[in-house]
Design a protein around this nucleic acid. Structure first.
Lengths: 349, 349
DNA sequence: CTTCTCGTGTAGAACGTTGCACAAAAACTG
DNA sequence: CAGTTTTTGTGCAACGTTCTACACGAGAAG
């Protein structure tokens, strides 16, 4: 015992404390400890106190890998595309926050907007035995999501349609676009253009929410007797910039550009500035999302608010419900709200 | 077999394909498959082809939890505080990207700036058997980090000092602050204030990089015969706003405010706008980080660039090196570069 | 022809949990 | 008080890997 430092029981030095150690310390069986950990049926109050005391005194923490092998891993996975997309980061943050106080932990993998890499991220999460999946604006057809949803509880954000194998949370793009078109029309605009992103070839009704935004823009424009004008771009600063160039180079350039996402609107602002067009006096620019960045002094973008906090929180709740046994799908629509800031005004006369 | 759909071998229906299935398919032992998976020593080319063929045809994917129980989980964990902090999201993105093509996967947990919750995030990652840890601007004393570093390879970002149990990557705040003070002095400013964040009570030399920025600001100011003026705030928009209020309410308000982080500079811009101070004509505002948000039209903040791409990429490399056996610590300094944009100009006369 | 070494492959005991099947004790029945 | 049900606790076989220890055969060395 004193001859060799790591003889006999000295092996305990670096070992992680496991459920057996707890059982020994508490003087009960391993199964009993497991029961209180999962708070399963059939534990007396006395047992519970004994075991929790042992857990605390030993500083025991369950091994997620081992748990995942038989039961749950108590891990929920999120997939977003690039984190630089501000709204997605906000949703992920809210999701994580909503999990505080539960026994679940959220982990996140960021991908780029590419079906292959999103699929790989999901597989990676599944390899890590997550108990549930939250996908933000997943860039894949309904059928592909469906396959994953059959394996594990899943909630998709920013998808329309009402799939029955998974839950969805979607902004109310129809109302949002109507509010925005009405706002611009009331200001006196008639040439209102819209920037959208590609559909990805996904078929209705299971599409990404920006498609609903575009459709509602088109129909509201027609209702008001105006001609819709849509241009497609990638939803990032550069995409918005290029789309704006294209729009402003036209014979009859729009007096208002409504971008389907705030991030694209930032690119529109850059194009306007480069051309010496003052916003909103000579060009009105609006977005959708009300990401943090839109509120920053100097940007102050008129946009449609969709609460990232709400989306993340509800997503967490829906997943927990599924883990507790719910099987019918739930579809949640978040409210759209017009936020008027600096970048919208009447058209030049 | 035809009576009951899930009789006998029908059980294979929903089961995940495991290493045994692969071994059977390839006609070799389980150990052999394991060897090729980890490409360990002692596999003939013939064996390798047989096994990889079986893996592909079965679509086998190793179970990370089970792997983590004996060997590695092939998972690297990152901890950031709120993702809304743009630079941190950018670093995390670069880290993930750098891991593409390796057999490792990065996962992320976002926390708030609070030692308890950061610690909990790390523990959660350790419970999930990550093989390495990347901490971005960890809000905890060196000693606490050290404890984790002894358990697992670890790299800390935005920490100064040269700890020997873990690697660090830090922006060159000394040079950055010198560049910024010189820039402002050359423009003619003499009353240059600085906004910093709390030190957290961590002791030199193991502090967060914003402390180095502040120290360098102070010493450079003195070298130029100017009086430093520092105010402490939290590094978010609101914190910057409040600090600016305090500075601008003073008897002799500064003509230039150098915020220790871009995100805080945004708050300064808001305060300036509220007071009707035009930037940069009446007030110069600068930041540090060159986060994406600073380049946006309408913000166009003068700042110090530190490459998030570089930080994330190097972090991934350092961790992989450690996993391959390196044990001496490496400390990497990223270059600081002045980026002059709209928000800095000569002081009002 | 031994004996050594080397390269290649395999058996099987971990790893830390869960949860089924069961036993024992306690609490109700009539 | 015997019989039944309920509550509480335990034993043990999984789960899917890794990796040490070992066996086997083929050349190389003596």
């Amino acid at each position: 015992m004193n001859a060799l430092p790591q003889a006999s029981d000295g092996a305990a030095q670096n070992r992680r404390v496991n459920i057996q150690d707890v059982a020994r310390e508490a003087g009960v069986s391993v199964s009993a400890v497991s029961k209180v950990l999962r708070d399963a049926y059939g534990v007396s109050p006395a047992m519970r106190t004994k075991v929790t005391a042992a857990i605390d005194s030993l500083g025991y923490r369950p091994h997620a890998g081992a748990r995942g092998m038989r039961g749950r891993s108590y891990t929920l996975g999120m997939v977003t595309r690039e984190l630089s997309s501000p709204l997605q980061a906000e949703i992920a943050g809210a999701f994580g926050l909503a999990l505080d106080g539960t026994s679940y932990q959220g982990i996140l993998i960021a991908t780029d907007i590419n079906m292959g890499s999103q699929r790989r991220a999901i597989e990676a999460l599944l390899d890590r035995q997550v108990d549930g999946l939250m996908l933000i604006a997943p860039w894949m057809p309904h059928e592909a999501i469906d396959v994953f949803a059959r394996r594990t509880p899943l909630v998709a954000i920013a998808r329309t349609g009402e799939p029955d194998s998974y839950d969805t949370i979607c902004d109310d793009g129809r109302t949002g676009s109507r509010l925005m078109v009405d706002h611009l029309a009331e200001l006196g605009h008639t040439r209102i253009a819209h920037i959208t992103a590609g559909s990805g070839g996904f078929v209705a009704p299971h599409v990404l929410s920006h498609v609903a935004r575009r459709e509602a823009y088109e129909s509201r424009m027609r209702e008001l007797g105006l001609t819709p004008h849509v241009v497609t771009a990638t939803f990032d600063e550069k995409g918005g910039y290029e789309a704006a160039q294209q729009l402003l180079d036209a014979d009859e350039p729009p007096s208002a550009i409504y971008a389907g996402a705030d991030i694209a609107a930032l690119g529109v602002l850059r194009a306007a500035k480069e051309r010496g067009l003052s916003v909103p006096d000579e060009l009105t620019v609006t977005g959708f999302d009300n990401a943090f960045i839109s509120s920053v002094t100097g940007v102050e973008l008129t946009t449609i608010d969709q609460s990232a906090l709400e989306a993340g929180t509800v997503a967490a709740r829906l997943l927990l419900e599924r883990l507790n046994g719910r099987t019918e799908a739930v579809h949640h629509l978040t409210e759209a709200r017009l936020v008027v800031r600096r970048t919208s005004g009447p058209p030049p006369t």
